[in-house]
Simulated scan of single mutants.
Amino acid sequence: MKMKNLKKLLALSLAFVLAIGVSACGSSTKDGGSDTSASGKEVYRTLDEIKKDGTINIGVFSDKNPFGYVDENGEYQGYDVYFADRLAKDLGVKVNYVSTEAANRIEYLQTGKVDVILANFTVTEERAEEVDFANPYMNVSLGVVSRDDNVITSLDNWNKDDSIIVISGTTAETYLTKNYPDIPLQKFDSYATAKEAFENGTSVAWANDNTEVIAFSLQNKGYTVGIPELGSADSIAPAVTKGNDTLLNWINDEITSLGEENFFHADYEATLADTYGMDYEDSLVVEGGKTE
């Protein structure tokens, strides 16, 4: 009996040691970042790891013209993409574009699917608890677009039978849920499906970044932005995984350096001027990370 008990004790001890070893091995990824599933820490690649690999993974929209979209040749284009190309060039690496939707932006950073998000990402206090934002490169506020035969100029005294279209995971969804909880929301995962639904008349209005709804009204006859500014003005900025300080600091230095050459005004003129004209340039562009 004593021998059997000793064998059981040794077997249990060995199993315990092996369990600890497996747990420890699962706490890191092949590129040195932490594995959220094992350790609860964020997954990311440092600046040096990205340089060593020779490729940076950048999350952008593929269906939000003129900020991030895929053209008829299958190439990524737009304001965010113009900026991303320059980041990769100055870092000395190739860029791998990862198509993202609004609701996936934080997840893609936290799971290490991308190194940087450049997908018209509005800075908010809630998001800043989950990702690290670099300095801004654009100003934005919310806006509401509606049809010419029923222009929405106010959200007060709303008809409870009407709904507003929003994109899941955007500041428009958050703002309306908090400030106008009685307004029914139609939520879509992508800009393409939201645009199609709005054009098909499923809702009386579409709330989104004012840059998006202004662009929609300019490109589509029969629509008016009756509310060009809803709530407070915000900033658009790159985002990296929480704690990835080496990459964050490099991007901030890069934005400062690019500001010295008026890079973001050049970006606007190359990618946004055809949509918005020149009247919006100085109000939308943030040069060198300085919002004032």
Rank of each mutant, 00 (worst) to 15 (best):
G59D: 03
Q110P: 07
V116L: 10
N120D: 15
T55F: 08
V81Y: 02
K113S: 14
A88I: 11
T111H: 13
G59A: 12
S62G: 15
I56T: 02
V114A: 12
L87C: 14
T36S: 13
L118K: 04
R45F: 02
F121N: 14
Q110K: 15
Y108K: 13
D71C: 00
R45D: 07
Y82I: 01
L118E: 12
A102Y: 07
E75F: 05
K113R: 15
V114I: 14
L91S: 02
Y97F: 14
K113H: 13
E42F: 12
Y69G: 00
Q77E: 12
D53A: 13
G54N: 08
Q110C: 10
T124V: 02
Y69M: 03
K94C: 08
N120S: 14
V70P: 00
A38C: 09
V95H: 07
I56F: 01
N57S: 15
K51I: 09
G92V: 09
N65F: 14
D85C: 01
D71L: 02
Y76M: 04
N73R: 06
K64N: 13
E125H: 07
V93C: 04
F61L: 03
V60Q: 00
N65W: 10
V98A: 09
K41Q: 14
P66M: 09
F67P: 03
I106T: 15
A84M: 08
E42G: 00
N120T: 10
G68H: 02
S37T: 10
E72L: 07
K89H: 11
V60D: 03
L47W: 07
D80R: 03
K41V: 09
T55D: 06
A38S: 05
I50S: 01
Y82A: 02
F83P: 06
V70I: 15
